[in-house]
Nucleic acid binder design. Structure first.
Length: 923
RNA sequence: GCCCGGAUGGUGGAAUGGUAGACACGAGGGACUUAAAAUCCCUUGGCUAUUACGGCUGUGUGGGUUCAAGUCCCACUCCGGGUACCA
């Protein structure tokens, strides 16, 4: 019987379904382990071979942990809300739910063929009302919460209201982006609408007027992580800055916790670093600069307080609230013209131009330490959203200030000894200070670091300013002007203030609409819904939530997916706790992985979840790139020349479908059928073959290099696909897909099969395994066990190949050996392992077979081979009995027949014996 | 600009400071076969040899530490990724 993988794989996939093999439940008697893949967005294109890479890696780990006795939670679901389905809907009128469900079915079919051990009874879909009920629920909780900066956690907003009623803003520790203060009397005298408006400055989910990334082409706002270099990630359309009233999440309140808790998780250093940069903590000082001739001051933020004596001007962001305060009547027209110009530039234009621009306000400020009078400018290189939107400019030691000073011909005062600032600024943070002393503060002679400290002390003690930590992390913009997303459980009252629906009204179902585009008067698509009102008749919110809303807590829902009383039952959460292993791409570093951590921490503050971090260990699988093939058409002909002969002709390379190419040799018949224009193509061959050229590119339809896992499964089987994807290289590395190498692993499985079967007969015996066979097996157990823990699956696969080759060479027929071999292979190639496991006479599933332990005693050699190095090179090897003393090994080496030739009678200077490895003789 | 990675045969990739190139693909040669497929065996970093199953050289470049460096340290080159007027 040959290895009939299609039959085997279908049979066992059916068996697993019939026996609910992968069903898991809370089981307090066993330790738990939670293995999770980032759930996919089900796109219309289906899966290509790159997608399952991470799924296979996590599947191996999940199966391994199960064989190790853990109760393994390994679920899968779909991130079902998203732009592509909606854009398709706008074009075709097809409801996004219809296409989404169709795509999900296709994904499921493809996933099933690969033999994953998912517990599909726990599947979640973000667009399912029973799921998004809990997304809306969490949003309501956030709406009804504020962030207490003293005890560093979210608290009910009612507590804050109680505080306002008694004390106003006096002694209030709430995180806010407003500097409004009021007394208890003032608060109590306010109308409800006024209070509601004020509370928006404190809620964790709030509606705020903020600068947003507006994408006109998509007709929606985008979060910072959905924009890259001024273009939208989805679609690559230009994005502009716009002041809009939008729902936001107060992620910035959690900045310090999001930063500090990175130290508690087992993630790669690079992704932690990306998050640290995104959070962007910077320690500095806020300082007050009084205006000349007026009783007002400007508050600035700087990390270089030590450069205070080099401040020669100040700059405000165009959107700064200070602008109106400082502009003089004479400068009004010039300033307005400048502000107008800035407003009409998109983020991208600002970035590309990068040219110095700005305008003088007419006002001056006083340097609070140096006492000098300095002009105040406005320029768009200062950002309104960071720090205080105002800076002190030190052109000698900041390159942006330098460029500005040069452009406007402002003075440049060097403050560091030996720094040449005639051509460019000196931004480095080491050197000795100069020009920095007066009767108030003396910094001359100090290092920059000492000067920063001394200045901070000085400004704190004199009240000029205070030490301050700033974060770059912004609040997340949470509204999308779209149809295909979660509706907000919010209505607007008579005063136009947003009010929460009652929890009992959840889920608020996404309404039907007659079309999926915005209304004629520019309202979001939900403006088309009939009767889009709350139970009290008031209008509901027209925006929907962004993609990351549904993906922020899905890992919790898998724990308890059918619970309609809670997101997750408390006891269930305390069992599964957190994801032990999370596998997914790095592209989510500043999006999903920040939002999820934020969302989890919010729930943690209310004790809905028991862990402060959602994902204990994170593994980032690399991207699988495409390997494109080319044919070379001779100019102005329909003749194609083979790769190595193309130098003699003038040719145009043309992408050719990689699926009609094998080992770079073109299947000429299929090529002729591929497209009508090639039907009568002619070829110049080499050695009777047409050889194609190749290149590594992104895997995409337009490059004709997409390889579908279904095709691989059909030709080689799922086990071969699984092994090959792992064999390709380290899981974390990006690498090109090259079907060329797949024969090797397929051959390995055939060899394994041939060890069991000769014809139709199982040829195994109950003989005692030989020492040789035991050694081979235990070497494998040791290697694979170690490799799985470190995700070095590629070397594991190699170890299997070596072991099978050895067993084949020694004609091993021992059941005992093959029994363990099959158990070891089960996580990697579950179908063939299950088949052989049953052939060995077991009637349980191999998934529950106990992982074997290796025994060092089988690995010990009777004789140890030493390499003997003389004059820095290996010269000969010698065998000595295991356990020989180092001194004896040294003696044996020096007196060995092979040594004389190299020693040439000299006495060695030194001899180093590395136990069981080598002897190095130094002359 | 800044922050992370990385650089090893024709290719993908192995190597707790200890004989670099495991394993696989590809290539070359051979066996079996009418032939092909499949299978099996041998060779395969480069140079140089065949009087020696030998010599020399070799992990991006240049230095250093060490008995011993792909691995550690310093400087540099190139490639990939992230991020950016963040004061």
């Amino acid at each position: 019987m040959e290895y009939r993988f299609q039959e085997i794989e279908q049979r066992w996939q059916q068996y697993w379904r019939d026996h609910n093999t992968y069903r898991v439940d809370v089981d307090a008697s066993r330790p738990k382990f939670y293995v999770l893949d980032m759930f996919p967005y089900p796109s219309g294109a289906g899966l290509h071979v790159g997608h399952p890479l991470g799924y296979i890696a996590s599947d191996i780990y999940a199966r391994y942990k199960r064989q190790r006795g853990f109760n393994v939670l390994h679920p899968m679901g779909y991130d079902a809300y998203g732009l592509p389905a909606e854009q398709y809907a706008i074009q075709t009128g097809q409801h996004p739910e219809v296409t989404t469900i169709k795509n999900i079915a296709r994904y499921r079919e493809q996933l099933d063929k690969i033999g994953f051990c998912y517990d599909w009874s726990r599947e979640v879909r973000t667009c399912d009302p029973s799921y998004y009920k809990w997304t809306q629920w969490a949003f309501l909780k956030m709406f009804k919460s504020y962030y207490d900066t003293k005890c560093e956690k979210a608290r009910p907003i009612d507590e804050l209201v109680a505080h306002f009623e008694k004390h106003g803003t006096e002694g209030c520790n709430a995180h806010t982006n407003s500097d409004v203060t009021f007394t208890a009397d003032e608060w109590n005298a306010m109308s409800k609408a006024e209070r509601d408006e004020l509370l928006m400055n404190y809620r964790i989910a709030y509606r705020g007027n903020t600068m947003v990334n507006w994408c006109p082409k998509l007709g929606t706002v985008l979060a910072n992580d959905e924009v890259s270099e001024g273009l939208s990630i989805r679609g690559g359309f230009p994005v502009e800055q716009k002041m809009m009233s939008q729902w936001c999440l107060r992620v910035s309140a959690y900045a310090s916790r999001l930063l500090n808790d990175l130290d508690t998780v087992d993630w790669s250093e690079s992704i932690k670093e990306t998050q640290r940069n995104w959070i962007g903590r910077s320690e500095g000082a806020e300082m007050l600069f009084p205006l000349v001739g007026r009783n007002e001051q400007l508050l600035i933020f700087t990390t270089r307080a030590d450069t205070i004596f080099g401040v020669t001007f100040m700059v405000l962001a165009p959107e700064s609230e200070y602008v109106d305060m400082v502009v003089t009547p004479e400068q009004r027209a010039a300033v307005d013209a400048y502000l107008d110009e800035v407003k009409h530039k998109t983020e991208r234009e600002r970035m590309i131009e990068k040219k110095v621009s700005g305008v003088f306000t007419g006002s001056y400020a006083v340097n609070p330490i140096a006492g000098t009078e300095i002009p105040i400018y406005i320029s768009d290189y200062v950002l309104a959203g960071y720090g205080t939107g105002a800076i002190m400019a030190v052109p000698a030691h900041d390159s942006r200030d330098y460029a500005f000073a040069r452009h406007f011909n402002l003075p440049i005062i060097p403050l560091v000894e030996g720094a040449d600032v005639s051509e460019e600024s000196f931004d480095a943070k080491d050197g000795i200070m100069m020009n920095s002393s007066n009767d108030r503060l003396q910094l001359n002679g100090l290092t920059i670091k000492e000067a920063i400290e001394r200045t901070k002390q000085y400004i704190e003690s004199t009240g000029i300013g205070r030490v301050k930590v700033n974060y770059r992390l912004r609040d997340a913009i949470f509204s999308r002007q779209r149809y295909w997303g979660e509706p907000f459980p919010i209505y607007y009252d008579e005063a136009g203030q947003p009010q929460p629906l009652d929890e009992s009204e959840l889920p608020l179902l996404l309404p039907e609409v007659d079309a999926f585009k915005p209304t004629d008067n520019g309202e979001p698509p939900l403006g088309r819904a009939k009767n889009w009102v709350a139970s009290n008749g008031r209008p509901l919110e027209l925006c929907t939530m962004p993609g990351f809303a549904g993906s922020s807590a899905y890992y919790l829902r898998y724990m308890d997916p059918h619970n309609d009383q809670a997101l997750v039952d408390k006891a269930v959460d305390e069992y599964w706790r957190q994801v032990d292993l999370y596998v997914g791409g790095t592209e989510h570093a500043t999006g999903h992985l920040i939002y999820s951590r934020f969302w989890n921490k919010f729930l943690f503050d209310y004790d809905y979840v028991c862990e402060a971090e959602p994902f204990k260990k994170l593994v980032n699988q690399g991207m699988i790139q495409g390997r494109s093939n080319f044919v070379y058409r001779i100019k102005d002909t329909n003749k194609f020349v083979s790769f190595h002969l193309k130098g003699d002709y003038e040719v145009t390379p043309i992408h050719v479908d990689v699926n009609i190419v094998s080992n770079d040799a073109l299947d000429i018949e299929r090529f002729r059928q591929w497209r009508p224009e090639f039907a009568d193509a002619e070829f110049i061959l080499e050695n009777g073959k047409y050889i194609c050229g190749w290149a590594i590119e992104k895997m995409s339809k337009s490059m004709f290099n997409v390889v579908n896992p279904d095709d691989i499964v059909e030709r080689y089987g799922a086990d071969t696909l699984r092994l090959y994807e792992m064999f390709l290289g380290p899981v974390e590395a990006s690498k090109p897909w090259d079907t060329n190498g797949i024969d090797g692993v397929h051959r390995f499985l055939k060899k394994l099969w041939a060890l069991f079967y000769k014809g139709d007969d199982l040829q195994l015996t109950d003989e005692e395994p030989s020492a040789e066979a035991l050694k081979s097996l235990h070497k494998l157990i040791k290697k694979v066990t170690g490799d799985i823990e470190t995700f070095s699956y590629n070397t594991s696969v190699a170890a299997f190949m070596i072991c099978v080759n050895e067993l084949q060479a020694m004609k091993c027929r021992s059941r005992a050996i093959y029994n363990d071999l099959v158990v070891l292979l089960a996580p990697f190639a579950p179908h063939i392992s299950e088949e052989l496991w049953h052939a060995l006479g077991h009637d349980t599933t191999v998934c529950d077979a106990k992982w074997p332990e290796y025994n060092e005693k089988y690995l010990v050699e009777a004789n140890v081979k030493y390499a003997v190095m003389i004059k820095g090179r290996p010269r000969f090897t010698m065998e000595v009995p295991a356990g020989t003393e180092a001194a004896e090994v040294e003696r044996l080496a020096l007196t060995h027949d092979g040594a004389a030739k190299w020693l040439e009678g000299q006495t060695p200077k030194k001899v180093i014996v590395v136990p069981n490895k080598l002897v190095n003789i130094v002359l």
